[in-house]
Design a protein around this nucleic acid. Structure first.
Lengths: 328, 328
DNA sequence: TTGTATGCGTTATCAC
DNA sequence: GTGATAACGCATACAA
């Protein structure tokens, strides 16, 4: 029923090899023959079977993306960057959600490999031991958009260390003394890095590390509920990983008639459109989400193409976007 | 290098046919043999090549999803529902962005077919002629999550007709007379349906259809800018398709010291988390985004499995979520 | 420049 | 129950 390369060959009075050649742009075909074959292809509306092609060539023109949560604006913005570059290079994208579950992550990786994807991208970073081992064992190119302790992995991330340093120093310069640091609670390298950095800056300013108070929240609602706890420790500044959480804290605080940023400064480390839509507009560390994805996919295309890649790490610069929730 | 079914067969002293049988859970294998083969599979860490499998069986366990914009919270929420059901049924998902471009939509459809996906889902609806024709011509099962004029296509959508009717009647009952209707501007069946319905309700209440004013906006920023135009026509109620746009209008209005909902009621037809995070909280037509995706994918699995499907259309009921931007 | 033949790693149809 | 063997649709090495 389905029309194959043989049908085209027969109709065009050539061998299937020749059809394959014109299909793949092989120059060793007489222009006249090429025309003839192309005409038949057009006429029969023939489309090569990508699966057969994948089996024969061992290249599927497909990349796998492993992502914690596709409905999280943060990741979907990165994915958008990935996708656009992938399209440019004619790659299809297979996505898998993991919900920050290491087991799912591992399974997704294995499944993608059995699907013969040409490359795999992790969004948000990985640090699960078995996943890292898998990555190292395989020959499939892998790029991590995010953090990982393993230095042998290709990755792209943003210069959060520098940005958080400036943020914290700013807080201190403006007289703040107690910083609430609100994380996701998922085991996440970035969150640890930031915690360390916050402490580092505190101590450099002759302040105790006890001036940082750790909290955990994942949603806007949880952020709102966090208000009382933040108040309890008398925090005068909040650094939240997620802008959705930051928004919750912000609104929860305002509901109690506490002024932002006068009595409490709030900044988030994420930078989705949500921050911009908050009232008052949320200050953020301005991660270039789209770029992270775009750079990551570009890097992967190079790896899949066996091109030379200078650095294993690609660190994007980071701006701080001071809006209405900071006293800058 | 890569280990195949032959390697397993050799190691287990059976034929590849037998290995294939245990792989596929074929009962015609002696339990003892099964054990032996499974042990070898385990020991060699053998993973079947899904591409070869796809070629031989003509089933790839892969579904394609065609989506206007993956970074749009509305669609990514639906996708999340799709994904979860797909995972349950062991299907991989290939996504393609179209940016509401009919040409891209068509190309995506063709590419997915050449990739031998077992089924295809359109998010947001389609009405491009060539796409519809393609859908009808192919034997690949297709489900549209959204609207389409073509009645032969399987689809799932929400009961917007009923919901918008209640919304508009409510506006009128509360004494509103001029309704601003803010659409995306993309050719979109749903938007036309709603426009017709708004007019229908107006006329049923002996009001002219000129009491509906059409506007176009796609982002929060455009929504904010729209304020002056909405004010110009003296609208006392706004119905926006997107909650991001509704949020923009809302904030733009408040910035001018016009009271919401006292002087202007606002409701959106979308229902992403953004609506919930707006201040004041946005009233919406509560589309169950996740469910739309879940139901769509479930439907598709039935089609791919040649199961009986009662209805071509699946209409989900819709609640109206009256929050703080309506006088209810 | 073109054609023939083989392989890619499975599934599936036969026999035994 | 199990084992040969023929597809599946294409790329490609080798011949011509």
């Amino acid at each position: 029923m389905t029309i194959t390369i043989y049908d085209v060959a027969r109709e065009a009075n050539v061998s299937m090899a020749t059809v394959s050649r014109v299909l793949n742009g092989n120059p060793n075909v007489k222009p006249e023959t090429r025309r003839k074959v192309k005409d038949v292809i057009e006429r029969l509306n023939y489309k090569p079977n990508a699966v057969a092609r994948g089996l024969a060539s061992k290249k599927t023109k497909t990349v796998g993306v492993i992502i914690p949560d596709i409905s999280d604006l943060y990741y979907s913005a990165v994915l958008r960057g990935l996708e656009e570059i992938a399209e440019m290079y004619k790659y299809q994208i297979i996505i898998t959600n993991t919900d920050n579950d290491a087991k799912k992550e591992f399974d997704a990786f294995e499944t993608l490999r059995s699907n013969q994807v040409d490359g795999i991208i992790f969004l948000g970073g990985t640090d699960d031991k078995s996943v890292i081992e898998s990555i190292q064992r395989t020959t499939t190119p892998v790029v991590v958009c995010g953090y990982s302790k393993d230095m042998s992995i290709y990755r792209v991330n943003a210069n959060y260390r520098d940005a958080i340093e400036r943020v914290v120093q700013g807080f201190i310069d403006r007289g703040n003394e107690k910083i609430a640091y609100v994380q996701s609670g998922y085991h996440n390298i970035l969150e640890n890095i930031l915690a360390d950095k916050i402490i580092e800056v505190l101590e450099r300013n002759n302040m105790s590390k006890d001036n940082m108070f750790e909290f955990y929240a994942n949603t806007y609602e949880e952020g709102m509920d966090l208000f009382s706890e933040v108040k309890e420790v008398k925090a005068d500044a909040v650094i939240a990983i997620s802008d959705e959480v930051a928004g919750g804290i912000l609104h929860g605080t305002l509901d109690e008639n506490i002024s932002v940023p006068e009595d409490l400064e709030v900044i988030s480390c994420s930078n989705t459109r949500i921050a911009y839509m908050m009232r008052p507009r949320l200050s953020t560390i301005a991660v270039p989400l789209y770029d992270v994805g775009a750079v990551g996919m570009r890097l992967l295309t190079k790896l899949m193409n066996n091109e030379e890649v200078e650095e294993k790490i690609n660190v994007l610069p980071l701006d701080i976007n001071y809006a209405k929730t900071t006293r800058v």
